[in-house]
């Protein structure tokens, strides 16, 4: 999903004054040739808009909402649910919390706070879709956006989702519109409108049962992924052994 060069330059002039391509490339860390190509072709990537808005100190959500197709991003988002917040906590952090609670329950130590892994975690997109969605979220998403279900599942497996799909998923699920963009890592959680330290708070207050069940789901998912990787390797080894 992209915005037009004209709209982008119009927004940039209004938001940050006149910045040349070279200066913009330097500020955003995007390669100059990439940036120039996007501008020439008239299709500026959403990621570029986000990087530019950060560079000039504008809130990315507000910046994006200035473009026609993202207008509804300006709406005040509802608070994320506990499940949604937990979906953005890494597997290892969930397990660490379980271990910490166990140690605390045995009376030895106080439950320590620990720094959580950075977002997005390796299966953040899949976890987010599972946490927010009605059961048929993926089917509806594919149908509404005209993307082939297989294409969608490839993206999710690779922990990617185009901004278009992330937005549409949030619309279908009725959650904060920027949340999908946060799950893909385009926005930080704060930029999506989540309270500061939302993950820490949710992890600290979630019921033991929910915590353990969430961790079980994650481990099951991880097991499936690992099995698939192992099968891929096995398939490849058979080819190499016989033909290479």
């Amino acid at each position: 999903m992209t915005v037009s060069t004209k709209a982008f330059q119009h927004w940039l002039r209004q938001a940050g004054g006149d910045i040349g391509t070279a200066e913009l490339a330097r500020l955003t860390g995007i390669k100059k040739s990439t940036l120039a190509q996007q501008l020439v072709r008239g299709r500026v990537a959403v990621g570029t808009v986000v990087a530019a808005s950060r560079a000039i100190g504008v809130d990315p959500r507000r910046a994006l909402s200035g473009f026609d197709q993202f207008g509804d991003l300006a709406l005040v988002p509802p608070m994320p649910t506990e499940a949604e917040v937990l979906s953005q906590v890494a597997d290892s952090d969930l397990l660490q919390e379980i271990i910490n609670r166990r140690a605390a329950a045995e009376g030895h130590v106080a439950r320590p706070n620990f720094p959580l892994s950075p977002t997005p975690h390796p299966s953040s997109v899949r976890c987010w879709l599972d946490a927010v969605g009605p059961a048929d979220l993926r089917q509806r998403l594919a149908r509404d956006s005209g993307v082939a279900p297989q294409n969608l599942s490839t993206q999710v497996s690779a922990n990617r989702l185009t901004p278009e799909l992330a937005l549409q998923a949030a619309r279908i699920a009725g959650v904060g519109l920027a949340n999908g963009l946060a799950a893909t890592g385009l926005f930080t959680l704060e930029e999506a409108g989540w309270p500061a330290l939302a993950r820490e708070a949710a992890l600290g207050s979630v019921a033991n049962s929910t915590l353990v069940e969430t961790a079980v789901e994650r481990l099951e998912m991880l097991g499936k992924t690992l099995r698939r990787v192992e099968q891929d390797i096995e398939t490849q080894q058979a080819v190499w052994e016989n033909l290479a």
Binding site: T235, A238, V239, E241, N242, L243
Partner: peptide, 8 residues
């Protein structure tokens, strides 16, 4: 024979 074995 090798190709059939390679592709299982």
């Amino acid at each position: 024979g090798k190709i059939a074995a390679a592709y299982k």
